[in-house]
């Protein structure tokens, strides 16, 4: 399996399309961080440092800046990187005639699929590490704020969360490359799923919410109506990995953010934490934020594992004759 991982890594880093999407992601990220850094500097020079206390550095990643925040950008374009890495991983080799050759060597079938998946994950991890370090460096130089330990830990958790999220997309695109014989079809299917999950599911959530909990007067909804509407909308967002990722990354990276008011989030907390969270408005600690996002992270991890297991099963069961 080491041989497969090695070769796949070399392929990924040598492929033009990966380098293209990487440079796109890096350029946009630099732009976003630069603009965000400028606005943070303005706020700091106007004496707003108390307001930003404890999260100045994190704001580089979460502030909306001129266009949108870096986390939102990653939630939309991170999947594209995964898709670029995975959409043709099996069917290209099948069409090339190298898949049957590899399988005729003394290796287990699952080593092939596992090797390809791990190589994809390693590539994503390297890319994300490089990106976050570069942006952090840019922040240090541009804004001149040193991150606190708490902030660094939050960024590390965000790193893990992002890998899990992009792992979901990697598994999904590998699955498509197993099911579809043609590379073009699997690329189209991956793009379609990307558009559906990123752009349509949120709209669907709102549509379903207005259908199931219609308001009498939309301009002046009652508190009860609004709560039901929000619940349905959020529940649908929760089945979308993109929704889970955006929500949990904003809780992780923004100490003032507690997520939507879903009582199950508090189930894992002790009495004191629950009291503090429900009665005070200030920033919360890292451990509190972490407990808040545990349900989201578990769900996201579940999604990633499911896509990987599906592709694993599909590949191991597929008849070689069709290879």
């Amino acid at each position: 399996m080491k041989a497969i991982i090695k070769k796949e890594l070399a392929d990924h880093f040598g492929s033009t399309r990966f380098l293209l999407i990487m440079s796109l992601v890096f350029m946009v990220s630099f732009l976003i961080t630069h603009l965000t850094g400028q606005s943070i500097r303005e706020v700091l020079s106007q004496g707003g440092s108390a307001f930003l206390e404890g999260r100045t550095f994190l704001l580089l990643f979460t502030a909306t800046g001129a266009f949108f925040s870096l986390t939102l950008f990653l939630s939309i374009f991170g999947p594209l990187v995964s898709i670029v890495l995975g959409f043709d991983s099996i069917n290209r080799e099948r069409n090339l005639g190298t898949l049957s050759k590899i399988l005729a060597q003394p290796i287990h079938r699952d080593e092939v699929i596992l090797g390809k998946y791990l190589a994809g994950l390693i590539t994503l991890a390297i890319m994300l590490t490089a990106l976050m370090l570069l942006l952090a460096g840019l922040g240090l130089v541009g804004v001149g704020v040193v991150p606190t330990f708490d902030e660094v830990m939050r960024l590390c958790l965000f790193w893990v969360l992002s890998i899990v999220y992009m792992g979901f997309w990697l598994g999904l695109s590998i699955l498509l490359s197993i099911y579809f014989r043609s590379v073009a079809t699997s690329a189209m299917a991956a793009a379609a799923l990307w558009i559906f999950i990123i752009f349509f599911v949120p709209v669907l959530g709102q549509a379903a919410a207005s259908a199931m909990a219609p308001m009498n007067d939309p301009s002046r909804p009652t508190a009860r109506e609004l709560t039901t509407y929000n619940r349905i909308d959020k529940a649908i967002t929760m089945i979308s990995p993109a929704g889970l990722y955006t929500q949990s990354s904003s809780i992780l990276l923004d100490p003032t953010h507690r997520g939507s008011d879903q009582s199950f989030r508090y189930a894992l907390m002790n009495q004191l934490d629950r009291y503090l969270l429900t009665h005070f408005q200030g920033g919360i600690t890292l451990s509190q934020s972490f407990i808040l996002v545990i349900p989201d992270i578990l769900l996201l991890l579940g999604f990633s594992i499911i896509t990987f297991i599906l592709s694993y099963e599909a590949f191991v069961r597929q008849e070689v004759r069709s290879v």
């Binding site: 041989a3 090695k6 040598g14 090339l96 005639g97 060597q105 290796i107």
Partner: peptide, 29 residues
């Protein structure tokens, strides 16, 4: 499979790799 060599009909190779690199990959597997 470690004692049997199989040359499939329309056997494929990695086009961007050299003959040596293709062989090396098979040897590593």
């Amino acid at each position: 499979k470690s004692k049997v060599g199989y040359m499939a009909e329309n056997m494929g190779f990695y086009g961007d790799m050299s003959a040596k690199e293709n062989l090396k990959y098979v040897a590593e597997l």
